[in-house]
Write a protein that binds this DNA or RNA. Sequence first.
DNA 1: TCAGACTGAGGTAGCGTTTCCTCAAGCTGA
DNA 2: TCAGCTTGAGGAAACGCTACCTCAGTCTGA
Lengths: 339, 339
Amino acid sequence: MQADRQSTLTEVAQLAGVSLTTASKAINGRDRISEVTRKRVLRAARELSYSPNLVARSLASGRSSTIGVLLRDPMIHRIAMPIVIGAESMLEQWQLSAIIADAREVVDRLADLAAMLRQRNVDGLLIVGDNQGLTPSISASAKIPSVYVHGRTTNPRDVVHLVDDFAGAVAVVNHLVEVGRARIAHITGPEYSPAVQQRVLGIGHALEEHGLQLVGGVRYGQWSQRWASQAARDVLADAPDLDAIACGSDQIAAGVVEAVVASGRKVPDDVAVTGYDNWTVFAEETEPALTTVDMNLEKLGAAAVNDLFAMISGTRLGGGTRHHEGTLVVRGSTDRHAP
Amino acid sequence: MQADRQSTLTEVAQLAGVSLTTASKAINGRDRISEVTRKRVLRAARELSYSPNLVARSLASGRSSTIGVLLRDPMIHRIAMPIVIGAESMLEQWQLSAIIADAREVVDRLADLAAMLRQRNVDGLLIVGDNQGLTPSISASAKIPSVYVHGRTTNPRDVVHLVDDFAGAVAVVNHLVEVGRARIAHITGPEYSPAVQQRVLGIGHALEEHGLQLVGGVRYGQWSQRWASQAARDVLADAPDLDAIACGSDQIAAGVVEAVVASGRKVPDDVAVTGYDNWTVFAEETEPALTTVDMNLEKLGAAAVNDLFAMISGTRLGGGTRHHEGTLVVRGSTDRHAP
DNA sequence: TCAGACTGAGGTAGCGTTTCCTCAAGCTGA
DNA sequence: TCAGCTTGAGGAAACGCTACCTCAGTCTGA
């Protein structure tokens, strides 16, 4: 139908019988233009199904309406992808788009990629960490607005968005106590993981609030059903009278449920089990399904983009860490009446 | 240290004492320039730590060195993400970057997003399907080079890269026969899924080649351990003498192994079990670990980008489907001596 | 020896915008 | 009534680069 080529603002201006400048003002909602002229230009634009050439705009205005998303370690699909998706949906609201680059765990590459993205005139950077070690802060060298997600940085003045693992763990314990449990064990992932540490702290804190103590100490290990099964067998042998096992992840919980059932106990009647992550391939596949914590990763990504957009727009944001609480999802592994 | 601002090609040219044009030729490796001049320009560029303004280049040359990656359904992290990662690594080799956009299953959005990406002057489109229904072909309307991955399209002349599920299934059966199995059952996902269909066909074909028949017919169902366990119990009841179960996915295989073990049989001695996908959270977590097929999704993404780059560079590629074979990964669930 | 081809280099015109400035016209208030 | 403001509109530069063309000098071969 239409011409093969994209129509340009000049053509729109011609059709509307105004100058290029005026057309630009109309399209961009600038002032110093009368309402009737603006209407005329917009009609012409519609007629030619004009859409601005974003590249040229970027060159002329210095801003590109594009941000760079840096993934520290994209291999953690399960975590990074939802964050990116959440970020994306918010970007769309702000009419931005994203160039994605991943650092593949090579530390120095983060700075390289930032430079690469600057060549492409990105307006801001969203750096997705892996919540393991500290993410190297590139704010100083990058010289453009930067927001970090899921991982503390080496610079405490950075704007950082984190999942609140402490609060999530507290919610789990409160729920377990609410359903009448008092002898709670904890089986979780590797001790060096910040997520693990925070969850352990949260559990300890909440138990103390209720005047309780962890049964059998914290069992650190691996993110693995197989290992978790073994750990659960050990815990059950050490403390046969426990009535709940809070697990550091759904994957671990899957292994734990298996071991608990194999020991002849019933879930949740004899032993309640909780997971963490709400990773449905595990959480909805145990029998019964897992009570767990959804980290709302998409919201995390969206919130980070909101901050980034504010910074790009010139708002001076105070640096520091923003924590985002997860949501407790109650299922059959703690509550017989839940789905 | 250096100036805060990026240095421009003009500055490089001045420092080198040549014209802007000459500097451009030097940087871009064009001919019609002497080696000594080129050296001089490059030295000047290094001195100013010049890096080209890709936006301006894009505007002037009409090409942007950026491609658009469209995700039909990013929720299938497990599949889409490895493809994207593979694509990314190849893009890097060609000095391209990617703008990623996801359609969130809204069919029409695919075309919208393509238009959005065209505003950003992308040189090509990589469309990642979900391998369920047909991906709507946007090649006609997009008018830029497009390559499709993981999902057939509505236009048979499109360049499409697919995983070869048929061949993968054949490899599985051949392996099972090799390790002495002859009474093989098949438990898999939903019948409407093209992946499921291809694998079923492959299994049927390979069995026939060996003069064998499927035991108990194809059991279609869901991608779910829980369902798979039940299905395995049924199959074992119907055909207690089977000696292998080929599963449509690792997730299914995980459920199947559980049921086989629960029935008092040994894996692999009594019943060999195979998965599909090489999704380690399942494949390496069963006891014993799963023999499975790795679809090499990263290679798939990389190959697609290669084709796309060729098209962008002007090569006239024949349309049609390219199949990529997966790799059989042998583990303990079929071979007691394997890892 | 000289026409023609080839080479290295530079000049200039875009690319499609935005932004800054100028300018005419209409309006205000003293 | 007229200086001074405001408003709507347009002209022109700038953004940084590449593509196209021109041009002088050198090389080739008959």
